[in-house]
Structures are given as structure tokens and as C-alpha cells.
Amino acid sequence: MLAYTWLEAKAQFRNRDALIWRLGLPAGVYVLLTLVDGETSGSNTGRLVAMAAFGTVAAGLFATGPSLAQERASGWLRQLRTTPMRTRTVVVAKVAVAMAWVLPSIVLVAVMGILLTDIELDPRGWTELIGLMWIGSAPFAALGVLIGLAIPDAGAANTATNFAFMVLWLLGGIFTPAGDMPDALAAISRKLPSSGILEIGDSVAHGVAIPASAPALLAAWTAASGVLAALAWRRLGRR
């Protein structure tokens, strides 16, 4: 189990494209936007949380779905089934490694925020922000696993992952806050898991209580994706 997770982590962190996309991009875009508009006061927190959420969604989805689908298509998962390793270990390892991507991605955005802005948060506040957003990445990893297991073709799974990412990014409140959307879109936006993680981040950053609806939304998405992924998994085993 540990051996496999370690191998998975090494393989993924050697991927230069992934390093740029999942770590460099959220922090880079955050820095760029902040330098361009010179907004360094407390009102920058919205952007900081949005870019941290951006990294969370990207790492959660892309570290799981495409590689799982690729390893299914290539036959690697079948090869592993001929060894003593339980195949669900693969899924657990993917989720663990995805979470391992999320953490530095959020930390990097937070460090940039500390360096560039006057956002007022004490060390405990920062730790809480990073920690809660990290835990909140679970539904995105679960969604990635679902895509990787349910879509048989590696190319199609890639496309589906990109599509899910675009939906969460554009419609999910990261690019445009739900409050700025037409009512119909905003209603959808508030049901997407990205809204949950944004709400958690914003609440912590502003030092207000997290509304119970946010973790509930994330938990519901995680559970639903997990159950569907398990069903896809069982269908795979019966051949």
C-alpha cells in the first residue's frame, strides 16, 4: 500500500506539465492579477480564496481521473490484479497523491498572499484556511476517480476531466462569483462543490462562522461521487 502510494507520488511529481499546471498556475495567476490591479488590501482575500480553490479543483481532478483512465486503458490495472495488491489500493493511492498535490498548491497561493498583500489573518487563521480548504478538496478527487473509472476510453476521460474542470471554474464561482451571475446560473453555481470550498475559504478569511451548508455540500458531492465510482468499479470487476 505504502510502496504503491510512494511510487504513484514519485511518478506524478516527475511530471513537469503537472507541476506547472497544478502548482505554478494558481499561484502565478494570483500574483499576476494582484500586481496588475495593485489591490493589496483586505478585499484581495476573495481573489486569494478563489485561486486557492482553483488549485484545489485542478489538482483534485487532474491527479486522479486522467491517470486512472490511462492505466485502465493501458492494462496496468489488469496487471496489478494478477499481483497480491488489492486493486482498490490503486484508488486510495490516487486520492492520497491528489491530496498531496492540493496542499502545496494552496500553500503557495497563501504564501504569495502573505508576501504581497495586507490581508489580516493571524497564523492560526492561515493554518485554518489552508487546512480546511485542503480537506475540502475531497469531492474533487472523488469526482476525478469517478471519471477515471466510469469512462472507459483514456482520451474521453481526459476530455471529461477538462470539461468538469471548466464547469467548476467558470460556473462554479471561481472565475465569477455566483453573486455576479444571472439568477438561474447562480442557482446552479451554488449547488456545485466549488461553491462549498469557496464559501469555507471566504468564511475563514473573513473570520466568520462557516455556514453548515458548505461542508454539507462538499460531503454530499464526495459521497455521491464515491458511491458512483464504487458502482463503476464493480462493473469493471465483473468481466
Binding site: 510502496a3 504503491y4 511510487l7 504513484e8 514519485k10 511518478a11 506524478q12 516527475r14 511530471n15 491517470s67 490511462q70 492505466e71 486503458a73 493501458s74 492494462g75 496496468w76 489488469r78 496487471q79 494478477t82 499481483t83 497480491p84 495488491m85
Partner: peptide
């Protein structure tokens, strides 16, 4: 197996070590 792929980004020795860790 006839056409089993191997994961991207790992070395031969790392793969061998993975299998060794499983048995």
C-alpha cells in the same frame, strides 16, 4: 499479460521494487 501497460514516469528498478514489495 499480452498487452499490459506500465505506468508513466517510473523507472525499471522502481517497478521491480514495487512488485517485490507486494510479494
Amino acid at each position: 499479460l499480452q498487452d499490459a501497460g506500465v505506468p508513466q514516469g517510473v523507472t525499471v528498478a522502481e517497478l521491480v521494487d514495487l512488485i517485490r514489495a507486494l510479494y
